[in-house]
């Protein structure tokens, strides 16, 4: 069972690897005279975009080796600060304490991600005001009937304190308000999707990039949480995704950051549900 899963996974990786072979762009030329390694770690939202870029670069230039790992925003900043990796990703700005620990840190924002409140698709609620959401998360409203839904207890799902998604939702949707202690805490966007998609009376929040038909994004103060509304500035609950380096980036790392910020990177960022920064 496990080995079959594993071989299936290998096949999938293999296929995606080779299906992207023909797409060689001019932007890759900047890597022509470079070689070496880049280790990348940190924020999990960044991973799909980083992997896309790494695959394209390594396919064209086998002398360049790029590894991509997760760990979370805090881990990314810590690792790059200690010199363990070349690029540390974070879904939030570097904190002042972190900056005093690692004064050389330079941040490169490259994309915008929105965070949407979500409910189960069977929930008849489509629209909530941010005041209502604040009341629900702080424990003032605990039944769906008080916001126009069924007579059922609201099951609140939140994220851990390390989460960049939680951070932006808490700041920009809850206005740094309370989250009840009884709220269930899930450790990732994926776990949030599983939890909310299987609980009819759930209320949670997650990255717009992760939305699909298994959950329903709630219209917030009459603004739908979509990529378009995030781009034109109507939807307020958004955050930047950062790459961080310790000191000025070396030529190879610099080329990688340029590549992510270029047209190829933008296409990849859009395809994964995020919004490229111009």
């Amino acid at each position: 069972m496990r080995s079959r899963l594993l071989s299936g996974l290998c096949l999938a990786i293999f296929l995606t690897f080779f299906s992207s072979l023909p797409a060689v762009s001019e932007e890759l030329n900047q890597f022509a005279n470079l070689q070496g390694e880049i280790d990348i770690a940190g924020g999990t939202a960044h991973i799909p975009v980083m992997k896309d870029a790494a695959r394209k670069i390594m396919t064209q230039y086998p002398h360049i080796n790029i590894t991509v790992a997760g760990g979370g925003s805090g881990v990314g900043i810590q690792k790059v600060g200690e010199g363990l990796v070349g690029i540390g990703n974070a879904g939030r700005p570097v904190s002042s304490k972190e900056l005093s620990q690692y004064p050389q840190m330079i941040s490169f924002p490259f994309a915008v991600d929105g965070v949407a409140p979500i409910v189960n698709p069977v929930n008849k609620i489509d629209n909530l005001s941010s005041a209502q959401i604040k009341d629900i998360f702080s424990g003032g409203i605990s039944n769906w009937k008080d916001v126009g839904g069924d007579d059922a207890a609201i099951h609140i799902y939140s994220r851990d304190e390390a989460s960049g998604t939680r951070s932006v939702f808490w700041k920009k949707c809850l206005s740094r308000g309370d989250i009840v202690e009884s709220a269930n805490i899930v450790p990732s966007n994926g776990a949030m999707k599983i939890a909310v998609s299987r609980d009819h009376y759930a209320l949670g929040y997650m990255s717009i990039g992760h939305l699909d038909e298994t959950v329903k994004a709630v219209v917030l103060d009459n603004v739908a949480p979509t990529q378009e509304n995030a781009i034109n500035g109507l939807y307020p609950v958004i955050r930047k995704l950062f790459m961080n380096t310790n000191g000025a980036p070396k030529p190879l790392v610099n080329a990688f950051i340029n590549y992510i910020s270029g047209a190829d990177g933008a296409a990849s960022i859009t395809s994964h549900g995020y919004i490229p920064l111009k």
Partner: peptide
């Protein structure tokens, strides 16, 4: 009711800002 264990707590906060009390 929902609970949090010490082990789960470590797993949840290990990715936070490494300079904080958290």
């Amino acid at each position: 009711d929902s609970i949090r264990t010490l082990t789960a707590h470590i797993a949840l906060v290990v990715a936070t800002d490494s300079q904080s009390t958290i």
